[in-house]
Amino acid sequence: MRFMSHPEGVEFASPLRHVDGIDDVSHLGKWEIRGDAHGLDGEVIRISPDRALVVGDRRPDAPRVYDMTAALAAFEVEGEDLMRRLTELDLDELPAIGSILRGTPALIERRGGERFRLYVPQELGHYVAETVVDLAKGLGR
């Protein structure tokens, strides 16, 4: 399934490319693992006992791997206060999958301190990023 992967030599068109003021990391390699994800290299975010997301440039070595690099928009934001305006999820219990902006699905992880990374379906990425920029304005940022 090479058609699932972004080709080399072609510019990566991030879903967030038209939003200013967002820390876009959508280009990061994102791989969905089905089945056991124990012992995999890279940053492994466990979603369920037989589902995980691996973030990294190299395709993980597992029997069932799906390239979700282009499927998920990813960006980082600073501040618990902003996160609390985005989601009801418990910020002390991350990473977690849940709803942001009253109903948009997202995977949220803490990148240390008050820095958070959000993964959202790329087709909703522009909308989410725009809204997050607007919410940050409400906090005077």
């Binding site: 992967s5 080709p7 068109a13 879903p15 690099t69 282009a70």
Partner: peptide, 8 residues
């Protein structure tokens, strides 16, 4: 094709 290559 991969969404990120769609425009291309």
């Amino acid at each position: 094709c991969a969404a990120s290559a769609g425009e291309h």
